[in-house]
Simulated scan of single mutants.
Amino acid sequence: MRTCLVVDDSTVIRKIARRILEEMDFEITEAEDGEKALEVCKCGLPDAVLLDWNMPVMDGFEFLGNLRRLPGGDQPKVVFCTTENGIDHIARGLDAGANEYIMKPFDKDIVAAKFREVGLIEVTVPV
């Protein structure tokens, strides 16, 4: 089963993301900040990371830099999740190593589309 680490300081966002991703057949691990997420990754890298940008302790940008420096840390697909819609903010995240981004609030269709774009779920073609 594919794995996804959901990193967000909001328990509500983590709960919503968990529900959506479990319906997409992902096994979910949660962390409420980048520091805890990094510890999870040191124990075993997930296939995907749904990453909040603005968090206490260690923000998403700092976490992403640390993740990408871990052995194998270039492998997880990282989709950052943000309320910031400035092109500079988005470009900074993508330049730091994020594979895609999602604007909050999000729903299942948005998550599925972005996960498809980065190759985490298969594209289904209607017959």
Rank of each mutant, 00 (worst) to 15 (best):
F63T: 15
I121H: 05
F80G: 05
G119M: 04
P46N: 12
P56F: 09
I16N: 05
T11D: 15
D109N: 06
A98Q: 05
F61V: 07
A96R: 09
R68N: 15
D47Q: 12
N85C: 10
V127F: 06
T82Q: 00
V111R: 00
V123H: 07
D107M: 02
E35L: 12
R14I: 05
A48K: 06
D74K: 14
V78F: 10
V79M: 07
D74H: 12
K42P: 03
E22I: 00
K104Y: 00
P126E: 01
G86E: 08
M103A: 03
L50I: 03
V127Q: 04
D59H: 11
R2D: 14
E100K: 11
P126I: 02
E117N: 10
V123S: 09
I90T: 06
V123A: 12
N54D: 13
F61G: 13
L50A: 07
E122L: 08
G73T: 09
V79D: 02
V6G: 03
M58K: 15
C81W: 00
N54G: 09
N66F: 14
E30P: 05
L120H: 06
L94I: 15
M58T: 15
H89V: 09
G65Y: 14
D52A: 03
M58Y: 13
L70N: 14
D8M: 08
C43S: 15
I121G: 04
T124F: 10
V40T: 10
D88W: 10
E22N: 02
E84N: 03
F61T: 09
E84S: 04
K15T: 05
E84K: 00
E62D: 15
V6W: 05
D47V: 07
G44E: 08
A91P: 00
I110K: 02
G93I: 08
L67R: 14
K15A: 13
L64V: 15
F26Q: 00
S10M: 04
H89L: 07
L38S: 07
A37W: 01
